Amino acid sequence: MDDKMKKIVTVVLVIVIGIAVFAGYGYVTQKTTANEGIEYLNGKEYQKAYEKFHEAASKFTLFWTGQKTDTLLYEGESLYQLERYDDAIKVYDQLIAKGESRGYSFKAFCYMGKGETNKALNVCKQGIQALPDAGDIYCTEYGIYAKQKKYKEGLDILKEALTRDGLKNKQEVLFTRISAYESMFDYDTALQYAKAYVKAYPNDKQGKKELTFLETR
């Protein structure tokens, strides 16, 4: 290797190492800044929380990480609590672009906050089309129907979810199904599903509590 090539290689290595160090620093400071935001969020100081999460999300990291996803979720939550729904939607759109199912659910909540129920439902439908195995989106859509007391329509969504072989968050969907039948005053069916739920998830305290409630009716 001649001297010219050695110089080129050296420069490239310096640049690569510099980027890696800068990205590593960004990752660490993103975490510490986000932790400060969590403290503000827990204290219901939503404006301060938003500022910290926005700062953390802006940190340079070499790759998109789970930490980045969590930071944006917290940023969106802070904006939601501030009733800055349109700004929160922009944050959730970033998550949707990365295939994050919670982005659809929380975006739908923002439209509900704005009183735009149809748009909220459309977001859920878009999410289910894009991520048909994301059980949490089905539950969100059910919740929107339930708020309108359209329990049958909501239950149909849950049934659709349970036809998916690769369904994620299945436990959440199954528990929501119990609540759906309760809301329809079909306590016998709710009890049947509650028993099956507790058998499948014996360590779930919420499920046991629901089963006890239904058995004593």
Rank of each mutant, 00 (worst) to 15 (best):
M1Y: 00
D2A: 02
K4W: 03
K4D: 06
I8Y: 08
T10E: 15
T10K: 12
V12K: 05
L13F: 11
V14L: 12
V14N: 09
V16S: 06
A20L: 13
V21E: 01
F22N: 11
Y25N: 10
G26K: 05
Y27M: 13
V28G: 10
V28R: 13
K31V: 12
T33R: 08
T33Q: 09
A34E: 04
N35A: 13
N35I: 01
E36G: 09
G37A: 14
G37C: 11
E39I: 07
N42E: 14
G43Q: 10
G43M: 07
G43A: 15
K44L: 05
E45W: 10
E45A: 12
E45C: 08
Y46A: 07
Y46P: 14
Y46Q: 08
K48F: 03
E51T: 08
E51V: 05
K52E: 03
E55I: 11
A56C: 11
A57Q: 03
S58C: 03
S58Y: 12
K59D: 04
T61K: 15
L62M: 10
G66C: 11
K68D: 15
T69K: 10
T69G: 03
D70A: 13
L72T: 01
Y74H: 07
E75L: 07
E75N: 04
G76Q: 05
L79T: 08
L79C: 12
Y80S: 02
Y80C: 02
Y80E: 04
L82A: 00
L82G: 07
Y85D: 00
D86E: 14
A88Y: 00
I89S: 02
V91T: 12
Y92V: 06
D93C: 07
D93W: 09
Q94S: 05
Q94C: 05
Q94G: 07
I96E: 01
I96G: 01
A97F: 02
A97E: 09
E100N: 15
S101E: 12
G103N: 12
S105D: 07
F106L: 14
C110N: 14
M112L: 15
K114N: 11
K114T: 09
K114C: 09
K119V: 07
A120L: 03
L121M: 13
N122M: 13
C124P: 09
Q126H: 11
I128W: 10
Q129F: 08
L131D: 04
P132S: 03
D133R: 09
D133F: 09
I137H: 06
Y138V: 07
Y138L: 12
C139G: 06
T140W: 08
Y142T: 00
G143I: 00
Y145Q: 01
K149V: 00
K150N: 08
K150A: 08
Y151M: 02
Y151N: 02
E153D: 14
I157T: 06
I157R: 03
I157S: 06
L158A: 03
L158V: 08
E160T: 09
L162W: 06
R164P: 01
D165E: 13
G166C: 07
L167C: 04
K168Q: 15
N169M: 13
K170D: 00
E172H: 14
T176E: 01
R177K: 15
S179P: 04
A180L: 11
A180Y: 03
E182P: 04
M184G: 00
D186P: 00
Y187I: 02
D188W: 06
L191K: 12
A194Q: 06
A194S: 06
A200N: 04
Y201V: 11
K208G: 10
E210Q: 15
E210T: 12
L211H: 04
T212D: 14
T212W: 10
F213N: 13
L214M: 08
E215K: 14
